[in-house]
């Protein structure tokens, strides 16, 4: 099982973070911060990083500027 925000999806061997996000029906854009098990990944990295079973992917949209 992989969790993407509140949604749980079935784990598939070899799936990337981007695959998991897509599978969970979530959309992201350049303002989204993607955190996988506590580590922030860039939008480039999510295309190649492989998800592990039990992973928790948080999608946090940046809504203001610091």
């Amino acid at each position: 099982m992989v969790r993407v925000n509140e949604r749980e999806i079935e784990y598939k061997k070899g799936m990337t973070v981007a695959d998991a996000i897509r599978e969970a029906g979530q959309s992201i854009d350049k303002m989204t911060i993607v955190i996988v098990d506590g580590i922030v990944l860039s939008l480039d990295e999510i295309k190649s990083v492989i998800v592990e079973d039990g992973a928790f992917i948080k999608l946090l949209p940046l809504i203001s500027g610091g």
Binding site: N5, I33, V40, S42, K58, L59, L60, L62, G66
Partner: peptide, 22 residues
């Protein structure tokens, strides 16, 4: 809403993750 706000979860430093690649 704050539960999903990167400023709450990390801090304003998270802005760099968006500004740098763009």
């Amino acid at each position: 809403s704050a539960k999903k706000d990167p400023f709450h979860n990390i801090g304003t430093i998270s802005t760099i993750e968006v500004t740098a690649p763009n």
